[in-house]
Amino acid sequence: MNNGHIIELENVSKNYQRGPETVHAVKNVSLSVSSGEYVAVIGPSGSGKTTLMNIIGCLDHPSDGRVMINGREIQDENESGLTRLRQTSIGFVFQQFFLIPTLNVIENVTLPALFAGHKPNGRGRDLLEKVGLANRMHHLPGQLSGGEMQRVAIARSLVNAPPILLADEPTGNLDSKNAGMIMDLFGKLNADGVTVVMVTHNTDIVKRCNRTVHIEDGVIRQ
């Protein structure tokens, strides 16, 4: 495994127990993503997209198969190992922004650095400049628009300088103008070398990606 791939899944399956029934959410999936790629994951609801993101995001172990993220095999990692991997290697952006309402913008952005145990040393401010919100750093989330909140969330996901950015419908809550701005931002981040994997239903977004992974019934149909 590896061969220059930052994300590599080999014959990965994930099964859940739902009452007496075993759900095969992902079946024997193999997927490789090179560093700097911009990948869209598409598929109908219940197809296994979220489970796939869950595994790539080191939030869960696979039931079977091997997963390598940024050079580390996650099936060998315990919970704290996975946490450490999330702190150093992966940034998450969701449809909801999950900003803490009583912390201001800069405090929200630097929060992941607190969990990683290092000082952001001005990186928070740099990222806010990058997303065009340096002038709002002392504002509370309630004083921002939806598009601005998502830009704060993106800045926050990058504060620990992860090489991988996982996004789950990041424009789902935004109007088309703000969605366009966010997608431009993802494009810039990808151009700067960040590997982006994005779950989406939006065909306009899919067109901006280098590669599309279509998943259906837990199986990848590229």
């Binding site: 995001g57 939030l59 919970e79 704290s80 946490t83 450490r84 999330r86 702190q87 940034g91 998450f92 969701f94 909801q96 999950f98 803490i100 929060l111 992941p112 969990f115 990683a116 926050r156 996901s157 620990n160």
Partner: peptide, 16 residues
């Protein structure tokens, strides 16, 4: 719950 879940995503461990 959702916010805590997100904090876990961005690297908050159980001890955090």
């Amino acid at each position: 719950r959702r916010e805590i879940a997100y904090l876990k995503c961005v690297g908050a461990g159980k001890y955090d």
